[in-house]
Design a protein around this nucleic acid. Sequence first.
RNA 1: GGGCUUGUAGCUCAGUUGGUUAGAGCGCCACAUUGACAUUGUGGAGGUCAGAGGUUCGACUCCUCUCAAGCCCACCA
Length: 839
Amino acid sequence: MTKELEKAYQPSTVEAAIYQRWEASGYFNPDNLPGKRPKTFSIAMPPPNVTGELHLGHATGLTIQDLLTRFYRMRGYKALYVPGTDHAGISTQVMVERLIAKSGLDRHTLGRNKFLKQVWNWKEKYGTRITEQVRQLGVSCDWSREHFTMDETLTTAVQKAFIQMYNDGLIYRGDRIVNWDPKSNTALSDLEVKHIETSGKLFYIKYPLFGSTKYLTVATTRPETMLGDTAVAVHPDDTRYQSYIGKTVLLPITEREIPIVADARVEKEFGTGVVKITPAHDHLDYEIGKDHKLEIINVIGQDGRMTKAAGEFYGKSVADTRHEIIKRLEAEELLEKSVDYIHNQARSERTGAPIEPLISKQWFVKMDKLAAAGIKAVKQGKIEIVPKRFEKVYFHWLENIQDWCISRQLWWGHQIPVWYNGDKVKAATTSPGPDWTQDEDTLDTWFSSGLWTFSTLGWPGKTKDLKLYHPTSVMETAWDILFFWVARMIMMSLYFLNEVPFNKVYIHGLVLDRHGQKMSKSKGTGVDPIPMTEKYGTDAIRLSLVLGTAPGQDFRLYEEKIAGYRNFVNKLWNVSRFILSHKATKKPLKPITIADQWIMSRLQQLVSSVTDNIEAYKFSDAGTAIYDFLWHELADWYIEASKEQPNVAILHHVLETVLRLAHPFMPFVTEEIWSRWHGTKLEDMLIIQEWPKAEKKYVDTKAEKQFTILRDLIVGIRNVRAEEKIPPAKLLTVNYDGKYTALVAEHAGMINRLARLEKLEAQKVTKPTGSISGLNYSVAHTKDATVVAKEIKAVSQYIQRIEQKLSNKKFVDNAPQTVVEAERAKLKEQREKLKKLSS
RNA sequence: GGGCUUGUAGCUCAGUUGGUUAGAGCGCCACAUUGACAUUGUGGAGGUCAGAGGUUCGACUCCUCUCAAGCCCACCA
């Protein structure tokens, strides 16, 4: 028994209950799905930060991932969508440190164990929030397979992975220049460093030539690092300085004698063309220093203060040191000038602190071989990136990759499974003995994320899941973590499993605000999707994140857009209300009127279009097809036409099909309507209904054409009637082209009579085929002078156009035969039409 | 410095390997409306497809350049 539907759809009152029923049904878990299901579809959820908040970026990805999962589940696949969260080393640690700072504590006074306990508490407290938000979006992932990057099984996977790579010689430890974040006191990988345009000053400092009154002037933004200078460099071809190469200068303040070297990496045009070389505190200088075998002097420590090597500045902060050095140089008349200068300052992506490049002992992953394999997999087409243009970016990054610094001086994360005993070093999951101590550092978060597709399926165990669901079908993500994550997963999976982690990478665009700006919490331009789901319904949010977007293309989102899709959801609701107000019929599914034939034919095309487009990852096209069909064909025309003579079998069939097709896009409203219609048994839910198939026997292009003509005519007549102020009671008939003629009148009886008189070819027109906006329509062959005159004019103009084209010799001679023929056919058709109209 | 993307109606965007008269949504204006729906319906106004060349019988679509906006990468101190 169909429950009555309220006048307007109220998402907030039904969504939670629907989600509960889905979860209770167990169908999120592919093991519980009915039927045989020989094919599998699997997708791993990019794990959000466990303590983070859901934002629209997540919502976009989750919507598309869920859409795919629901689609393949309905298509009879074993569909698995694995959820999880990420411990997000730095962000989480920084957050908790900030929290305990409020009570005057810091992690060092607390100690490692107590601090970690705090973080775990925090995780327990806030860790469920994000997954609740994921549920609110209607995501149909298998919560029984949920994972956290630091839970036991994944920790084991991380340790095994590290140890294997270490034993294979891919992981090494060494003193190298790294990006140091002085705020969170850890090394960072190159990717975690962002270059931000910053205004500062460029200082021109005189370095006296040793044993001479002359000097060389260097330009630098960081005068304090001069304490660690071990050379100055010029370009070998720079004629201004060639004679100085090999000589020495006297470093101001410290009065050290340092060489002048020549190196092609120096830009002649920048500053004075002379650059100070500080191998310990600049990446390029480090490289140059290495090649020229320069001394390395660490003057800045990991605490952001000057080291003993900085002599009199020992213990002072970098900023203070800079101040004092400038003052000293001025006093000694060695500061030539300082100019305003805008440069790209390296900052920590997470903490925003200016990066301090310095030398320290860290763990690295050798990237050359891994990268080569990653490149190969995509080049060979084992992984397809959609849209394709991102392949180029991917290749470029991997081709120029540096070794990956994976150790972090953080406590929150996977502690590096390496043990020391004097000079002895051993990689192991547990302590090799009583005198061994474990490495203090933790691993880069992305090291564990890199294993995500297979660690969540049970690796390093040889599990059933791993065999069945890996490689996953597709990785769906935003382009901003293509390198951080996607590339690393590919390399890790190839290395550990010798197979790709996924066959396809689908990249969605970033969500921008109404002005096209990146949404950001700090600017207050972020839109929290959760209040929006409460206001407009989750389905409306989902639609606004999918429709009107293109792969990899950033798109704008604003409230009016969401409201528009809310209206669409409501439209479906009301269409259903109308259709379900007609009781089910035993009559067979049989199109009778032109309108029936038309809607059935359109429906088949909708089925193909939605199916094909989702398979081709064109979600927007698929969704738009449903939108247009539902609103502009079903609601605007077929339902209008059904008001007098409803073909209930067809109405029900169309609704049922549309609900299935729309379900991956708008799961809540479709499931709600479905349950009101078919009852609330879990095994009858829409989520596991079969995906519709297009049925050829209903495809009827002739009826489609007829109905289109009819529709155009009715619109035309409405207009004419309005313009000419023809009284509504008057019969209006219109001749189309002799083949199909439409007859439109106020009263059905008049059409019947006329149709019989005219002995129309199709028997179906002996009755009015429907009623639209108070007009009954049928097919006949009388004509109305006003309308015909307009028609004649339009057709004549069109004929002229084609004639003109065909009289163009170039066109006839050069255009493809098919095109010319098509034009000739059109001309013939139009001429016949004109003839009929004029007679 | 290298690379990518975008520029179509007031706004947000479609426009499928070049082929009838370039479309939609929102907004605006006018009208309508007792029964699926005001979260509605119908109609209207509004576009030298950023600009300039080129290829072609034919260009929003392909090529070159210019202008504008945005993004990514990179060791310019």
